[in-house]
Amino acid sequence: MATKPEEFNFSKHDQFNNSMIPGKFARALRTCKIWQFIRFIVLNIKMLIVVSKSH
């Protein structure tokens, strides 16, 4: 069975073998427009809270 693309890098370097590498679903979510729009709202709110606590 062929290695899944997201698992290929584990064998590239010893450093990578002990890391966590996102799978297909996690990677897809990173550029999924609908999900990222929701995250955009959430991140802005979280950042504004930190900004307001810092002034």
Partner: peptide, 14 residues
């Protein structure tokens, strides 16, 4: 509660 990190397209938009 106020220390977080996340990678994605939303971060690029910001």
């Amino acid at each position: 509660d106020y220390t977080f990190g996340e990678i994605g397209l939303a971060g690029h938009w910001i």
